[in-house]
Write a protein that binds this DNA or RNA. Structure first.
Length: 418
RNA sequence: GUGGGUGUAGCUCAGCUGGUUAGAGCGCCGGAUUGUGGAUCCGGAGGUCGCGGGUUCGAAACCCGUCACUCACCCCA
Protein backbone atom coordinates (compact mmCIF):
# COMPACT_ATOMS: atom_id res chain seq x y z
CA UNK A 1 0.00 0.00 0.00
CA UNK A 2 1.22 3.46 -0.84
CA UNK A 3 0.85 5.76 2.10
CA UNK A 4 1.26 9.47 2.64
CA UNK A 5 4.63 11.08 3.25
CA UNK A 6 5.90 11.42 6.80
CA UNK A 7 4.81 14.67 8.39
CA UNK A 8 2.11 15.28 5.79
CA UNK A 9 -1.54 14.87 6.67
CA UNK A 10 -4.84 14.26 4.94
CA UNK A 11 -7.64 16.53 6.05
CA UNK A 12 -10.77 14.45 6.30
CA UNK A 13 -14.13 16.24 5.98
CA UNK A 14 -14.63 16.56 9.72
CA UNK A 15 -11.37 18.43 10.16
CA UNK A 16 -11.73 20.34 6.91
CA UNK A 17 -14.87 21.85 8.45
CA UNK A 18 -12.77 23.10 11.36
CA UNK A 19 -10.30 24.68 8.95
CA UNK A 20 -13.10 26.41 7.10
CA UNK A 21 -14.08 28.18 10.30
CA UNK A 22 -10.52 29.36 10.83
CA UNK A 23 -10.04 30.40 7.22
CA UNK A 24 -13.36 32.18 7.02
CA UNK A 25 -12.62 34.13 10.21
CA UNK A 26 -9.13 35.02 9.00
CA UNK A 27 -10.39 36.25 5.64
CA UNK A 28 -13.29 38.20 7.07
CA UNK A 29 -11.29 39.98 9.76
CA UNK A 30 -8.28 40.68 7.54
CA UNK A 31 -10.58 42.31 5.04
CA UNK A 32 -12.29 44.20 7.86
CA UNK A 33 -8.92 45.64 8.91
CA UNK A 34 -8.10 46.76 5.37
CA UNK A 35 -5.94 43.84 4.25
CA UNK A 36 -6.36 42.22 0.86
CA UNK A 37 -5.48 38.73 -0.20
CA UNK A 38 -2.22 38.01 -1.97
CA UNK A 39 -1.23 34.64 -3.43
CA UNK A 40 2.42 34.01 -4.06
CA UNK A 41 4.05 30.85 -5.43
CA UNK A 42 4.74 27.80 -3.34
CA UNK A 43 8.29 27.62 -4.62
CA UNK A 44 10.83 30.33 -5.15
CA UNK A 45 14.53 30.55 -5.88
CA UNK A 46 16.53 29.18 -2.96
CA UNK A 47 18.49 32.38 -2.70
CA UNK A 48 15.39 34.35 -1.71
CA UNK A 49 14.95 32.33 1.47
CA UNK A 50 18.65 32.15 2.24
CA UNK A 51 18.91 35.93 2.08
CA UNK A 52 15.73 36.80 3.94
CA UNK A 53 15.40 34.16 6.65
CA UNK A 54 19.12 34.12 7.41
CA UNK A 55 21.83 31.75 6.28
CA UNK A 56 22.66 30.51 9.78
CA UNK A 57 19.10 29.72 10.86
CA UNK A 58 17.99 26.11 11.26
CA UNK A 59 15.37 26.63 8.59
CA UNK A 60 17.92 27.50 5.93
CA UNK A 61 20.67 25.26 7.24
CA UNK A 62 18.80 21.99 7.35
CA UNK A 63 15.04 22.25 6.97
CA UNK A 64 14.39 23.41 3.43
CA UNK A 65 12.96 21.25 0.68
CA UNK A 66 15.40 22.28 -2.01
CA UNK A 67 15.66 20.79 -5.50
CA UNK A 68 17.22 21.51 -8.84
CA UNK A 69 15.15 22.74 -11.73
CA UNK A 70 15.90 21.35 -15.18
CA UNK A 71 18.19 24.23 -16.00
CA UNK A 72 20.18 23.59 -12.85
CA UNK A 73 18.88 26.52 -10.83
CA UNK A 74 18.13 25.84 -7.20
CA UNK A 75 14.50 26.08 -6.10
CA UNK A 76 12.94 25.70 -2.67
CA UNK A 77 9.47 24.94 -1.38
CA UNK A 78 8.62 27.95 0.76
CA UNK A 79 9.29 27.44 4.48
CA UNK A 80 7.34 30.64 5.22
CA UNK A 81 5.58 33.28 3.18
CA UNK A 82 7.02 36.64 4.18
CA UNK A 83 9.99 36.31 1.84
CA UNK A 84 7.77 35.61 -1.15
CA UNK A 85 5.37 38.43 -0.34
CA UNK A 86 8.28 40.85 0.08
CA UNK A 87 9.70 39.68 -3.25
CA UNK A 88 6.35 40.27 -4.95
CA UNK A 89 6.09 43.68 -3.31
CA UNK A 90 9.44 44.66 -4.79
CA UNK A 91 8.92 43.00 -8.16
CA UNK A 92 5.61 44.75 -8.81
CA UNK A 93 6.89 48.04 -7.43
CA UNK A 94 3.99 48.17 -4.98
CA UNK A 95 5.85 50.71 -2.89
CA UNK A 96 4.99 53.24 -5.57
CA UNK A 97 1.26 52.99 -4.80
CA UNK A 98 -0.40 55.88 -3.09
CA UNK A 99 -2.03 53.65 -0.49
CA UNK A 100 -0.38 51.57 2.22
CA UNK A 101 0.08 48.01 1.04
CA UNK A 102 -1.48 45.52 3.41
CA UNK A 103 -1.84 41.85 2.50
CA UNK A 104 -3.01 38.59 3.95
CA UNK A 105 -2.33 35.08 2.72
CA UNK A 106 -3.31 31.49 3.44
CA UNK A 107 -1.46 28.43 2.29
CA UNK A 108 0.96 25.56 2.78
CA UNK A 109 4.57 25.88 3.98
CA UNK A 110 7.25 23.19 4.04
CA UNK A 111 9.99 22.43 6.52
CA UNK A 112 11.85 19.16 6.84
CA UNK A 113 11.60 18.71 10.60
CA UNK A 114 10.87 15.71 12.78
CA UNK A 115 7.07 15.73 13.19
CA UNK A 116 5.48 16.02 16.61
CA UNK A 117 2.33 17.46 18.16
CA UNK A 118 1.58 20.70 16.30
CA UNK A 119 4.50 20.35 13.93
CA UNK A 120 4.33 18.93 10.43
CA UNK A 121 6.49 18.97 7.34
CA UNK A 122 3.70 20.43 5.28
CA UNK A 123 1.83 22.85 7.47
CA UNK A 124 -0.40 25.81 6.77
CA UNK A 125 -0.28 29.40 7.76
CA UNK A 126 -2.55 32.38 7.69
CA UNK A 127 -0.57 35.59 7.86
CA UNK A 128 -0.57 39.29 7.17
CA UNK A 129 2.12 41.72 6.00
CA UNK A 130 1.81 45.46 6.32
CA UNK A 131 4.27 47.45 4.22
CA UNK A 132 5.22 51.09 4.30
CA UNK A 133 4.44 52.31 7.78
CA UNK A 134 7.07 52.67 10.49
CA UNK A 135 4.46 53.97 12.90
CA UNK A 136 3.89 52.10 16.15
CA UNK A 137 0.23 52.32 15.22
CA UNK A 138 0.94 49.78 12.47
CA UNK A 139 2.42 47.44 15.09
CA UNK A 140 -0.64 47.89 17.27
CA UNK A 141 -2.95 47.21 14.34
CA UNK A 142 -1.18 44.00 13.38
CA UNK A 143 -1.05 42.68 16.93
CA UNK A 144 -4.66 43.61 17.55
CA UNK A 145 -5.75 41.83 14.36
CA UNK A 146 -3.90 38.70 15.44
CA UNK A 147 -5.48 38.90 18.87
CA UNK A 148 -8.90 39.53 17.38
CA UNK A 149 -8.74 36.52 15.07
CA UNK A 150 -7.59 34.13 17.79
CA UNK A 151 -10.09 35.49 20.31
CA UNK A 152 -12.97 35.38 17.88
CA UNK A 153 -12.18 31.71 17.29
CA UNK A 154 -12.50 31.24 21.06
CA UNK A 155 -9.13 29.53 21.30
CA UNK A 156 -8.60 28.74 24.98
CA UNK A 157 -5.69 29.67 27.23
CA UNK A 158 -4.10 32.37 25.09
CA UNK A 159 -1.18 34.53 26.18
CA UNK A 160 0.32 37.39 24.18
CA UNK A 161 4.01 37.99 24.82
CA UNK A 162 5.88 40.93 23.38
CA UNK A 163 9.42 42.26 23.19
CA UNK A 164 11.56 44.68 21.25
CA UNK A 165 14.76 43.65 19.51
CA UNK A 166 15.81 47.22 18.78
CA UNK A 167 16.55 48.58 15.34
CA UNK A 168 19.41 47.66 13.05
CA UNK A 169 21.69 50.15 14.75
CA UNK A 170 20.90 48.97 18.30
CA UNK A 171 21.52 45.36 17.69
CA UNK A 172 25.26 45.29 16.96
CA UNK A 173 25.83 47.45 20.05
CA UNK A 174 23.76 45.17 22.23
CA UNK A 175 25.26 42.07 20.69
CA UNK A 176 28.67 43.29 21.82
CA UNK A 177 27.50 43.86 25.38
CA UNK A 178 25.73 40.49 25.42
CA UNK A 179 28.73 38.64 24.00
CA UNK A 180 31.01 40.10 26.67
CA UNK A 181 28.61 38.80 29.26
CA UNK A 182 28.20 35.39 27.62
CA UNK A 183 31.96 34.90 27.35
CA UNK A 184 32.21 35.20 31.12
CA UNK A 185 29.49 32.56 31.49
CA UNK A 186 30.65 30.27 28.72
CA UNK A 187 31.58 27.42 31.08
CA UNK A 188 27.96 27.02 32.08
CA UNK A 189 26.40 27.14 28.63
CA UNK A 190 25.35 24.11 26.63
CA UNK A 191 27.16 23.13 23.43
CA UNK A 192 24.37 24.52 21.37
CA UNK A 193 24.54 27.91 23.04
CA UNK A 194 28.30 28.09 22.60
CA UNK A 195 27.72 27.58 18.93
CA UNK A 196 24.98 30.19 18.97
CA UNK A 197 27.42 32.73 20.43
CA UNK A 198 29.12 32.70 17.08
CA UNK A 199 26.01 32.56 14.92
CA UNK A 200 23.11 34.25 16.69
CA UNK A 201 23.91 35.26 20.27
CA UNK A 202 20.39 36.54 20.92
CA UNK A 203 19.05 33.03 20.72
CA UNK A 204 21.08 32.04 23.77
CA UNK A 205 18.57 34.05 25.80
CA UNK A 206 15.80 31.86 24.46
CA UNK A 207 17.50 28.55 25.37
CA UNK A 208 15.39 26.21 27.46
CA UNK A 209 18.26 24.31 29.09
CA UNK A 210 17.97 25.10 32.81
CA UNK A 211 21.69 25.79 33.32
CA UNK A 212 21.66 28.21 30.40
CA UNK A 213 18.59 29.90 31.78
CA UNK A 214 20.28 30.31 35.13
CA UNK A 215 23.52 31.50 33.58
CA UNK A 216 21.76 34.20 31.60
CA UNK A 217 19.53 35.28 34.47
CA UNK A 218 21.64 38.39 34.99
CA UNK A 219 22.31 38.99 31.31
CA UNK A 220 22.00 42.57 30.13
CA UNK A 221 18.50 43.10 28.84
CA UNK A 222 17.91 44.04 25.25
CA UNK A 223 15.26 46.49 26.27
CA UNK A 224 17.78 48.32 28.50
CA UNK A 225 20.03 48.88 25.52
CA UNK A 226 17.62 50.36 23.07
CA UNK A 227 18.21 53.70 21.41
CA UNK A 228 15.91 56.50 22.37
CA UNK A 229 13.89 56.04 19.19
CA UNK A 230 13.54 52.30 19.61
CA UNK A 231 12.52 52.66 23.21
CA UNK A 232 9.97 55.28 22.33
CA UNK A 233 8.61 53.12 19.54
CA UNK A 234 8.19 50.20 21.93
CA UNK A 235 6.54 52.39 24.56
CA UNK A 236 4.04 53.63 22.03
CA UNK A 237 3.24 50.11 20.89
CA UNK A 238 2.61 49.04 24.48
CA UNK A 239 0.58 52.16 25.11
CA UNK A 240 -1.54 51.45 22.05
CA UNK A 241 -2.23 47.89 23.18
CA UNK A 242 -3.27 49.15 26.59
CA UNK A 243 -5.55 51.63 24.93
CA UNK A 244 -7.27 48.83 23.05
CA UNK A 245 -7.49 46.63 26.11
CA UNK A 246 -5.28 43.89 24.68
CA UNK A 247 -3.56 42.02 27.51
CA UNK A 248 0.15 41.39 26.99
CA UNK A 249 3.12 40.07 28.89
CA UNK A 250 6.57 41.60 28.51
CA UNK A 251 9.09 38.90 27.73
CA UNK A 252 12.63 40.24 27.35
CA UNK A 253 13.80 36.79 26.29
CA UNK A 254 11.40 36.50 23.40
CA UNK A 255 13.67 36.26 20.38
CA UNK A 256 12.22 35.31 17.04
CA UNK A 257 14.27 32.85 15.06
CA UNK A 258 14.29 34.59 11.75
CA UNK A 259 17.08 37.06 11.08
CA UNK A 260 14.93 39.73 9.50
CA UNK A 261 13.05 40.76 12.62
CA UNK A 262 13.64 44.21 14.13
CA UNK A 263 12.01 46.21 16.92
CA UNK A 264 8.68 44.71 17.94
CA UNK A 265 8.38 40.92 18.16
CA UNK A 266 5.42 39.07 19.61
CA UNK A 267 4.02 35.60 20.07
CA UNK A 268 0.67 34.18 21.12
CA UNK A 269 0.77 30.81 22.84
CA UNK A 270 -1.96 28.47 24.07
CA UNK A 271 -1.61 26.40 27.22
CA UNK A 272 -3.62 23.69 25.56
CA UNK A 273 -1.03 22.93 22.92
CA UNK A 274 1.93 20.63 23.54
CA UNK A 275 5.55 21.68 23.48
CA UNK A 276 4.97 23.56 20.24
CA UNK A 277 2.66 26.04 21.85
CA UNK A 278 2.94 29.12 19.63
CA UNK A 279 -0.28 29.49 17.69
CA UNK A 280 0.65 32.80 16.11
CA UNK A 281 3.72 35.02 16.06
CA UNK A 282 5.35 37.81 14.18
CA UNK A 283 7.24 41.04 14.29
CA UNK A 284 8.58 44.06 12.52
CA UNK A 285 11.08 43.58 9.71
CA UNK A 286 12.12 47.03 8.58
CA UNK A 287 15.29 45.87 6.86
CA UNK A 288 14.00 43.03 4.74
CA UNK A 289 12.69 44.79 1.65
CA UNK A 290 15.89 46.75 1.29
CA UNK A 291 18.01 43.65 1.88
CA UNK A 292 16.19 42.00 -1.01
CA UNK A 293 17.03 44.87 -3.32
CA UNK A 294 13.92 47.00 -2.88
CA UNK A 295 13.50 50.52 -1.55
CA UNK A 296 13.95 51.14 2.16
CA UNK A 297 10.56 50.03 3.45
CA UNK A 298 9.34 49.48 7.00
CA UNK A 299 7.08 46.46 7.41
CA UNK A 300 5.45 44.25 10.00
CA UNK A 301 3.47 41.02 9.95
CA UNK A 302 2.48 37.82 11.67
CA UNK A 303 1.70 34.20 10.85
CA UNK A 304 -0.75 31.79 12.45
CA UNK A 305 -0.35 28.01 12.32
CA UNK A 306 -3.66 26.67 11.04
CA UNK A 307 -3.01 23.15 12.33
CA UNK A 308 -2.23 24.50 15.78
CA UNK A 309 -5.30 26.71 15.77
CA UNK A 310 -7.39 23.74 14.72
CA UNK A 311 -5.95 21.62 17.53
CA UNK A 312 -7.36 23.94 20.16
CA UNK A 313 -10.44 25.20 18.31
CA UNK A 314 -13.45 24.30 20.45
CA UNK A 315 -16.02 22.03 18.80
CA UNK A 316 -18.68 24.60 19.58
CA UNK A 317 -17.03 26.98 17.10
CA UNK A 318 -17.80 24.63 14.23
CA UNK A 319 -21.33 25.04 12.88
CA UNK A 320 -23.33 21.86 12.48
CA UNK A 321 -24.37 20.70 9.03
CA UNK A 322 -27.50 22.28 7.65
CA UNK A 323 -30.89 20.63 7.33
CA UNK A 324 -31.23 18.06 4.62
CA UNK A 325 -33.82 15.95 2.86
CA UNK A 326 -33.41 12.28 2.07
CA UNK A 327 -35.00 10.56 -0.88
CA UNK A 328 -35.89 6.93 -0.21
CA UNK A 329 -36.70 5.48 -3.61
CA UNK A 330 -36.98 1.75 -4.22
CA UNK A 331 -38.52 -0.68 -6.63
CA UNK A 332 -38.56 -0.82 -10.43
CA UNK A 333 -40.83 2.19 -10.76
CA UNK A 334 -39.86 4.06 -7.62
CA UNK A 335 -36.16 4.51 -8.33
CA UNK A 336 -36.46 6.57 -11.55
CA UNK A 337 -39.07 8.80 -9.94
CA UNK A 338 -36.81 9.31 -6.95
CA UNK A 339 -33.88 10.23 -9.16
CA UNK A 340 -35.98 12.90 -10.80
CA UNK A 341 -37.26 14.37 -7.55
CA UNK A 342 -33.77 14.40 -6.05
CA UNK A 343 -32.59 16.43 -9.02
CA UNK A 344 -35.54 18.77 -8.59
CA UNK A 345 -34.76 19.33 -4.91
CA UNK A 346 -31.17 20.16 -5.70
CA UNK A 347 -32.22 22.53 -8.42
CA UNK A 348 -34.33 24.32 -5.83
CA UNK A 349 -31.25 24.63 -3.60
CA UNK A 350 -32.35 22.04 -1.07
CA UNK A 351 -29.49 20.03 0.39
CA UNK A 352 -30.59 16.50 -0.37
CA UNK A 353 -29.22 13.02 -0.80
CA UNK A 354 -30.11 9.40 -1.37
CA UNK A 355 -28.31 6.09 -0.96
CA UNK A 356 -27.99 4.17 -4.19
CA UNK A 357 -26.86 1.03 -2.33
CA UNK A 358 -30.04 0.69 -0.33
CA UNK A 359 -32.72 -1.55 -1.82
CA UNK A 360 -35.19 -1.72 1.05
CA UNK A 361 -37.13 1.02 2.75
CA UNK A 362 -35.61 0.02 6.06
CA UNK A 363 -32.10 0.53 4.77
CA UNK A 364 -33.05 3.90 3.32
CA UNK A 365 -34.53 5.13 6.57
CA UNK A 366 -31.51 3.99 8.48
CA UNK A 367 -29.26 6.02 6.22
CA UNK A 368 -31.59 8.99 6.45
CA UNK A 369 -31.39 8.81 10.22
CA UNK A 370 -27.60 8.68 10.18
CA UNK A 371 -27.35 11.66 7.89
CA UNK A 372 -29.65 13.62 10.17
CA UNK A 373 -32.31 14.20 7.55
CA UNK A 374 -35.29 16.21 8.77
CA UNK A 375 -37.58 14.95 5.99
CA UNK A 376 -37.64 11.77 3.96
CA UNK A 377 -39.50 11.44 0.69
CA UNK A 378 -40.62 7.84 0.32
CA UNK A 379 -41.23 6.62 -3.20
CA UNK A 380 -42.00 2.95 -3.83
CA UNK A 381 -43.75 1.34 -6.75
CA UNK A 382 -47.19 2.04 -5.24
CA UNK A 383 -46.49 5.77 -4.93
CA UNK A 384 -44.96 5.95 -8.37
CA UNK A 385 -48.09 4.43 -9.87
CA UNK A 386 -50.38 6.77 -7.97
CA UNK A 387 -48.28 9.82 -8.84
CA UNK A 388 -47.65 10.50 -5.16
CA UNK A 389 -44.83 10.54 -2.64
CA UNK A 390 -44.95 10.06 1.10
CA UNK A 391 -43.42 12.87 3.13
CA UNK A 392 -42.10 11.66 6.48
CA UNK A 393 -41.09 14.06 9.22
CA UNK A 394 -38.22 12.27 10.97
CA UNK A 395 -38.64 13.93 14.33
CA UNK A 396 -42.43 13.76 14.67
CA UNK A 397 -42.77 10.60 12.54
CA UNK A 398 -45.81 12.16 10.88
CA UNK A 399 -46.43 11.14 7.30
CA UNK A 400 -48.58 12.54 4.56
CA UNK A 401 -49.12 12.02 0.87
CA UNK A 402 -48.06 14.71 -1.55
CA UNK A 403 -48.76 14.91 -5.26
CA UNK A 404 -45.59 14.11 -7.15
CA UNK A 405 -45.71 17.17 -9.36
CA UNK A 406 -45.42 19.70 -6.54
CA UNK A 407 -43.62 17.58 -3.93
CA UNK A 408 -40.16 19.10 -4.29
CA UNK A 409 -41.46 22.65 -4.14
CA UNK A 410 -43.61 21.81 -1.16
CA UNK A 411 -40.70 20.24 0.75
CA UNK A 412 -38.51 23.21 -0.01
CA UNK A 413 -40.97 25.63 1.56
CA UNK A 414 -41.59 23.39 4.56
CA UNK A 415 -37.87 23.10 5.18
CA UNK A 416 -37.45 26.83 5.59
CA UNK A 417 -40.18 26.91 8.22
CA UNK A 418 -38.81 24.04 10.33
C1' G B 1 19.73 14.72 13.57
C1' U B 2 19.01 12.50 19.04
C1' G B 3 16.01 10.04 22.75
C1' G B 4 11.39 7.62 24.85
C1' G B 5 6.58 5.18 23.98
C1' U B 6 3.29 2.30 20.86
C1' G B 7 2.07 -1.22 16.59
C1' U B 8 -3.51 -7.35 17.69
C1' A B 9 -10.79 -6.82 13.64
C1' G B 10 -13.25 -0.61 10.49
C1' C B 11 -12.42 2.08 15.72
C1' U B 12 -10.87 1.73 21.12
C1' C B 13 -8.31 -1.91 23.41
C1' A B 14 -7.71 -7.06 26.42
C1' G B 15 -4.64 -11.27 25.64
C1' C B 16 -1.17 -13.85 32.57
C1' U B 17 5.72 -16.60 33.94
C1' G B 18 5.53 -18.75 25.89
C1' G B 19 0.65 -23.68 25.66
C1' U B 20 -5.26 -26.10 22.07
C1' U B 21 -9.39 -23.00 17.14
C1' A B 22 -6.58 -15.00 19.04
C1' G B 23 -10.95 -12.20 22.26
C1' A B 24 -14.26 -7.98 24.11
C1' G B 25 -16.85 -3.37 23.50
C1' C B 26 -18.36 -0.15 19.80
C1' G B 27 -19.30 -0.03 14.58
C1' C B 28 -20.98 -2.81 10.10
C1' C B 29 -24.51 -6.42 7.57
C1' G B 30 -28.87 -9.55 8.16
C1' G B 31 -33.22 -11.41 10.91
C1' A B 32 -37.26 -10.81 14.65
C1' U B 33 -40.75 -6.40 11.66
C1' U B 34 -42.75 -9.97 3.50
C1' G B 35 -42.83 -1.23 2.62
C1' U B 36 -40.96 2.40 7.87
C1' G B 37 -35.04 4.90 11.22
C1' G B 38 -32.98 5.38 16.49
C1' A B 39 -34.24 1.10 21.45
C1' U B 40 -34.13 -4.38 22.47
C1' C B 41 -33.08 -9.50 21.32
C1' C B 42 -30.88 -13.13 17.93
C1' G B 43 -27.49 -14.33 14.09
C1' G B 44 -23.38 -13.14 10.69
C1' A B 45 -19.18 -11.09 8.19
C1' G B 46 -14.50 -9.17 9.27
C1' G B 47 -7.46 -10.78 11.54
C1' U B 48 -0.56 -11.79 6.85
C1' C B 49 -1.17 -10.27 15.62
C1' G B 50 3.37 -3.86 11.37
C1' C B 51 7.25 -6.57 8.39
C1' G B 52 11.71 -9.97 8.18
C1' G B 53 14.73 -13.29 10.61
C1' G B 54 16.03 -16.14 15.12
C1' U B 55 15.25 -19.13 19.88
C1' U B 56 11.65 -23.19 21.00
C1' C B 57 8.19 -29.34 20.68
C1' G B 58 5.24 -24.74 20.47
C1' A B 59 5.77 -17.35 19.60
C1' A B 60 0.76 -12.19 19.37
C1' A B 61 4.08 -12.87 23.74
C1' C B 62 11.16 -13.90 24.21
C1' C B 63 15.75 -12.08 21.14
C1' C B 64 17.82 -9.35 16.79
C1' G B 65 16.84 -6.32 12.75
C1' U B 66 13.59 -3.19 10.10
C1' C B 67 9.42 -0.01 9.03
C1' A B 68 5.45 3.00 10.60
C1' C B 69 2.99 6.01 14.08
C1' U B 70 3.54 9.06 18.31
C1' C B 71 5.63 12.28 22.14
C1' A B 72 9.86 15.02 23.55
C1' C B 73 14.81 17.41 22.55
C1' C B 74 16.41 20.82 18.78
C1' C B 75 13.80 24.52 16.28
C1' C B 76 9.42 26.95 15.21
C1' A B 77 3.58 28.74 13.20
Amino acid sequence: MIHGIKGVKDLLPEEAARWQVIEETARRLSFLYGYREIRVPIFESTELFARSIGASTDIVEKEMYTFQDRDGSSLTLRPEATAGVARAYIEHNLGASATAQKFFYLGPMFRHERPQAGRLRQFHQYGVESFGSASPLADVEVVSLLWRVLSELHLPGLTLEINSLGDVADRPAYKGVLLDFLKRQEEQLCQNCRRRMGTNPLRVLDCKVPTCKAATEEAPKLTDHLSLNSRQHFEEVLGGLKELGIPYLLNPRLVRGLDYYTLTTFEVTSQHLGAQNAVGAGGRYDGLVEALGGPKTPAIGFAVGIERASLVLPDSAVPSLGKMVFVAAFGQKGVPVGTRILHELRTLGVRSDSDYRATTLKAHLRQADRLGAVFVLIIGDDEAEKGQVILRNMTSKEQQDLPLSTAAQSVASRLSSV
